[in-house]
């Protein structure tokens, strides 16, 4: 655990140097990559550790984005708005978890998929509060330069990545992580041995919601304008899953690695195939599940950070 933490600190310190490159493109790409990292690590709590294929990421992201945006509309300072977004996602995940986590496998996946759609419709129709389909403008941060703003949001996302990573690391090595692994492998056996499966699953779901919600709020502040189809995009859910599967589900560095790799693919390859973009995504999922269910990190177990987390 200490070793993982150390590697992470070095990694994050290196990433923190990106804004000094002075390249706006790298800064934007880096911020997106960090956001994807938060999303992927969050999915790992419920999908990787507990083995529940959640598609609720888009719901948490959108909920966080709108909570943050509306809070800022009512004059809350940015940091407080982000906290509100995290708490909203946390509470929502708790309620949703109690209801949805009674379902298993595909049933759970489908049910969680619907949530984002429902929220999108709700936000669409609550025009006074959210601006509905017209979207919502956010106040532009009072910072000296555009460069400073870009760097600020980069560091905000990096901070969020660090928090999420710390939570994931702690969970992995805690009783909660052990229990979740048991649930993933055999839920009824875990139940039989006295693991409070409902509590554990809901906890994992809440952890998978809170940081995504905050990422949504940071994203909203970052881009200054959000609209329902943008933040409740089901692709957030799909991407989260692909990223984790790409990197290695249930492992500590897998989600981050997957996020970085995924975004690189997205940037380098897929913009050349705009028409079949989602098709390629689907194909990649199928190939991954069939041939590399444990992710790319499982390919090279000789690397120190691919060591099994037990």
């Amino acid at each position: 655990m200490k070793r993982d933490a150390l590697i992470a600190v070095v990694l994050f310190a290196l990433v923190a140097l990106v804004p000094f490159s002075g390249e706006a493109y790298w800064l934007r790409l880096g911020t997106t990559m960090l956001m994807y990292g938060v999303i992927a690590m969050s999915w790992n709590f419920i999908g990787g550790m507990a083995g529940y294929p959640s598609f609720a990421v888009a719901a948490f992201f959108g909920l966080g984005a709108y909570t943050g945006a509306v809070a800022q509309k009512f004059g809350l300072p940015m940091g407080l708005a982000w906290t509100c977004a995290g708490l909203a996602a946390l509470a929502f995940a708790a309620l949703l978890g109690v209801a949805l986590l009674r379902l298993r496998g595909h049933y759970f996946a489908i049910a969680s998929l619907v949530v984002a759609e429902v929220l999108r419709e709700l936000v669409n129709s609550a025009t006074e509060l959210t601006g509905g389909g017209m979207g919502l403008n956010l106040p532009i941060p009072t910072m000296t330069s555009i460069d400073a703003q870009a760097a600020f949001f980069f560091y905000a996302m990096l901070g969020l990545v660090a928090i999420t990573f710390a939570a994931m690391l702690l969970t992995t090595y805690s009783k909660l992580g052990f229990g979740l692994r048991c649930i993933q492998q055999n839920e009824s056996a875990a139940d039989m041995l006295g693991v409070d499966t409902t509590f554990y699953k809901v906890s994992a779901f809440m952890l998978s919601g809170v940081f995504v919600g905050m990422a949504g709020a940071v994203y909203a502040s970052w881009v200054h304008y959000i609209e329902p189809p943008d933040v409740f995009d089901v692709l957030f859910s799909v991407k989260a899953i692909v990223m984790v599967l790409l990197g290695g589900a249930g492992s500590v560095f897998g989600p981050l690695f997957g996020a970085a790799l995924f975004l690189s693919l997205e940037e380098l390859v897929w913009r050349k195939f705009l028409e079949v973009h989602t098709g390629v995504l689907g194909l990649l999922i199928v190939l991954l599940v069939m041939f590399l269910p444990k992710g790319l990190l499982s390919l090279s177990n000789r690397l120190p950070w691919a060591r099994k987390t037990r």
């Binding site: 692994r181 048991c182 492998q185 055999n186 009824s188 056996a189 875990a190 039989m192 041995l193 037990r310």
Partner: peptide, 15 residues
């Protein structure tokens, strides 16, 4: 109903 991908030792400890 063992935890198939966990070690025998971990399975026993889960008990």
């Amino acid at each position: 109903r063992l935890f198939a991908a966990m070690s025998v030792r971990d399975n026993l400890l889960m008990g």
